[in-house]
Design a protein around this nucleic acid. Sequence first.
DNA 1: AATATTCCCGTTTTT
DNA 2: CGGGAATATT
Length: 720
Amino acid sequence: MPIDILEGLNPRQREAVETVDGPLLIIAGPGSGKTRVITHRIANLVRVCGVAPYRIAAVTFTNKAAREMIERIDGLGLAPGMTVCTFHAFCAKLLRQHHDRAGIARNFTIFDRDDRRKLIRQAVERCDLSASNWSPAAIDQDISRAKNALLTAQAYTEGDLDWRERTIARIYACYEGLLAENAGLDFDDLLMKMASALDRDAELRGELEAIYRYVLVDEYQDTNSAQYQIARLLTRDHQNLCATGDPDQSIYGWRGADISNILHFEEDYPRAVVVKLEQNYRSTQRILAAADALIVDNVQRKEKTLWTKNDAGPLVRIVEHETGDDEARTVAEEIGERIRNGADAADIAVFYRVNALSRVLEEAMLRSGVSYQIARGLEFYNRREIKDVLAYLRVLVNPSDGLALTRIINTPPRGIGATTIQRLTDAAQASGMTLRAAVTDPDALSKLGRGAAKVRQFGELLTKLAEVVNLPAPEALEYVISHSGLRALYRDARDGDDAPAANLDELVSAAAAFQADEPEATLIEWLEHAALIGDVDAVDSNVSKVTLMTLHAAKGLEFDAVYIVGFEDGLLPFRRHDGSSSDASDTEEERRLCFVGMTRAKTRLCLSRARYRMLRGVTQRTVESPFLDALPADAVDYQAEVPRTSGRPARRSRGRLPDDLEEWTIGTLVRHPLHGLGRVLSIERGPKRTHVAVEFKDGLRRSWVLEFADLERVDFDDIG
DNA sequence: AATATTCCCGTTTTT
DNA sequence: CGGGAATATT
């Protein structure tokens, strides 16, 4: 039973496992056995060094990562009692525990993105602005960015602001007020409030540091300022911070992650031991070569040389399709074929940059009879019926949660309309009480006119339901679902859709599973859990289905065969094509994202693109992703699919130098299907690729990698 | 007040 | 194309 902790580890890995005290940075390339190192290191702490499990906190970035780590630790037979969870869950737990010192309500509820946007909309209105000019979604981004950078509304206001930002500052302040009124915390608050509590309250900081003697932060390259501060403050005296990550896999810059946190680790922690894990146990040489060729173009990175003892493996395929439908169909059919030939569907995955691409793929999978699972979690917790139930519970647990209350006051319909709600809101505001209080307040009710009776009834319902707050989650849920009228509402199927009713049952089962895991958990803890659970949690690696997911969701996973679709300029290096310019570091992040996707593959990797892509309703001509140009010609196999949708002529196959290369010199006349006739300005043979620059007759200058360019040499007598 | 309809928005990635 | 909000209808 006791494992040999160092068995089967390479020297680097051993060093990481055996470095116990002091700051440690593990730079772990893809497939380098990071999880193994982490779990063995924990085993070493517990088994050899005798550290009590509850003194260890391992913080991850996603639920999926946390769950996997728990599984692996369990697999080593390590005692429970360790804290292994996401940053957000960790903070939520601590904030709940120390709510008084963090200056927040004990029974706060967590506001998701929709709640947040609704509240921002309210804030915009309170500032006498129009929501059409100040889109809640855009402001959401700004506020989120501010919070991730630990800028309070106050601090934000004091910055050097332009006109737009000054308005945002007002909205931000107002939004904060609304959150406080609702006793709600948004996702960013969980981190920000924790960071500031640690910063402000030395005693609290000391207590927590004394408990968590060994702190491990996974995916350190994805930490934002708040997370960085939390990690730093928690380990200030003992310095036992083990950070693991890979700068080349930093893909969350858009949400405040700061890659320099990992790049500057050694400056922040001068005593730090740095271990680089560079041997890859996952992928073939060719896959690694291709991924590496892509990532070396980045400037912001820590030099790292991936290598493997694995076979060369098959060439990385690059396939060009006519349309997105063709692409999806071909991928689905090919996967179907593979499965019929004995492959396990669980070993195959398809990645895409944006969720919008999942639909075509799903349809194609369905048509080809390939069973698949899709990591798109909000699915469940975003459903109306689920949100309705959760809103009831939120109101019961946190009577200040006015947002949840307005959601359910007339769900199911009980004759309370907009005017009544308006009057109720006014009455509540006038006497400074919460909506929940107003609903059962005689004075407030008296101001409601005909609606009063209905509201009173609703108030009585809430009072009755309130009994459940001390019950375990499954019972509380069951009671609320049946007595609120929600079950009846969703059972009496409108247009024969019985999914909502089934989902309600499933929610109860989910709660029961949670309760079984944590028998002591309270209702409020389950609510918290439900609020913090997301996407990827829906994927089950034990099930024999093809996995469809975004590139972001793919991090940390591995598959035998990987398909990445949509290698199109603007889509794979994603660029919002509405004005705002993309800077070099945006492109670097896109490159890392692509790197992450490619390095998920063990043996087979297929990258594809469609020449015509339909997105948000319109079909557009695409341009090949520049990322494809970066791939080494000797690891790659280019194929152009014959068009299947329309009679568009097939193009000559790509990825080959022209046969008459020696005829290509400066001044050579060429023809391009889009730009017409042009003249070669320069031509350069590189070690891997040949670059050619061309000036066209309208003065346009462009350059290509010759192998992949749609250029054709023209003789003088062809011109006619 | 409830339901039906149109319109208009945005539109990356996730806790 | 699809969801949510504003608007029209019963």
